[in-house]
Design a protein around this nucleic acid. Structure first.
Lengths: 255, 255
DNA sequence: TCTTATTTGTTCGTATGTATT
DNA sequence: GAATACATACGAACAAATAAG
């Protein structure tokens, strides 16, 4: 069953057929695809052509390719992130989840897990600018690594000016019930306004490694999140997620 | 100056160098890159390797490749879209712009232009579901094609149930001052709530052609926008923009 | 630990097709 | 029609990661 149309390149036709087969359930989530040599034989094309087709599927996040092992179908379904309700205390604590991420992942029937590390570093340039700090100013960094069913799905460091966080629970790994948002309120710095800038970009090396993006041809969505207490920016969080693996939901009342 | 590191593939190293050269201004926006044969000679690699490198830059939206002509650097800077202020009447009419898009593009020093066509069609499945209509129900479609400096930057059809729009200015190409949002208000259906779902996906054929995405390896960002009047969904707009060419800005007060 | 087979990643040379000028 | 430039495809080869023994 070799590709026949001449208007569309062979590797795109092969990718189309593999994509359709995956979506039809012929290759269920987690299952192995045939090796490139087998596929080349099946489709009567060269291995390069198969390699290009699989590369396309890989860039779409549809398959996970590991050299020496083979190619498997993505296991995690698309994750929804509700941008506004996640900052309501009631929602964050709903269902016994310890935060918005926990609640969302559980709601999909997946098992959430996250690891947090805390340290003090120099603020990256864009973070310093957003926080109104001098370049290189010290900030407390809370590095969060998030998993669904043990698959890494989000890397989200957040940054708080050192003069706010040092000596408080904001600089502790365990941020307590309701998460750090509730801690800010306890400190007399309730976050009253949120701004988020959403963009698509190439991953950093760290993101590439953590999110298992085999190469840098898989884009990520960055959510550059700033929490304001009055006129003061008190927290920046830089969420990075695989671009094809998430849907961001926003909702608001119009004035 | 051939690539030397062995840890990173040659085509990625070439892409890195070309990307750096573009960002350094060595190849300004709109300028021509050397031909693949010249680059192959410059970097002492095969033309395939150059082709793969350029394909990577193309998928990032950094260059525009046209067969038979050559490769040019992207001309349009990244465009910001302010999601919330665009639905305030004052903002939409600011600066003489005839809508939020006009205002945003002018603010960047670019020349906005948009073409609108109106027809009545069967609602696509996802649109019908969002509007609470039967599959295949009739809707008025306002197809908008938007340009900045004559470069296509956004394709955004919007759909309104036929029983609302037919016979009103909502079904006219000229939607009047303040755009269709103001027309809804005039009809006693003011939009009081907005929901937007943001996702990254492959472009449709139509989007690929209009946005000049040479092949379907350039992702788009889809903003699936629903306008509600009370509990009733009265309008769906499906914004599609090149994934790497836009930043979406959201801002809201926390309760 | 070392060896070998398997599987994907990359590169080259070569050739042909398609679009533009 | 000819020249130029990008798109695709194949065969061959070697590199790198993994797994099995």
């Amino acid at each position: 069953m070799p590709p026949v149309e001449t208007s569309r390149s062979q590797f795109r036709q092969v990718a189309d057929q593999l994509r359709a087969a995956i979506e039809a359930g012929e290759y269920p989530p987690g299952s192995e695809l045939p090796s490139e040599l087998e596929l080349a034989s099946d489709y009567q094309v060269s291995r390069q052509t198969i390699n290009q087709a699989v590369r396309l599927l890989r860039s779409e996040g549809l398959v996970l390719v590991r050299r020496g092992k083979g190619t498997t179908v993505r296991e995690i379904p698309v994750i929804h992130r509700a941008a506004l309700t996640r900052y309501q205390r009631q929602e964050r604590e709903r269902g016994g989840g310890r935060g918005a991420f926990d609640t969302e992942i559980k709601g999909m029937g997946l098992a959430p897990r996250s690891e947090t590390t805390v340290d003090t570093v120099e603020a990256p340039a864009d973070v310093a600018a957003a926080l109104g700090l001098e370049p290189g100013a010290q900030v407390v960094r809370r590095q969060r690594r998030m998993y669904a069913n043990d698959v890494p799905v989000q890397l989200a460091p957040s940054y708080i000016p050192a003069d706010i966080a040092t000596g408080t629970q904001l600089a502790e790994v365990d941020s307590g019930p309701g998460g750090i948002i509730s801690r800010f309120a306890d400190l007399g710095l309730p976050q009253t306004r949120i701004t988020e800038a959403v963009r698509v970009r190439r991953p950093t090396d760290e993101e590439q490694q953590f999110l298992r993006l085999a190469e840098d041809d898989q884009p990520v969505v960055e959510i550059f999140h700033v929490g304001w207490s009055g006129d003061r920016a008190v927290e920046v969080a830089v969420h990075a997620v695989p671009a094809y693996g998430w849907v961001l939901d926003y909702a608001w009342e119009t004035s």
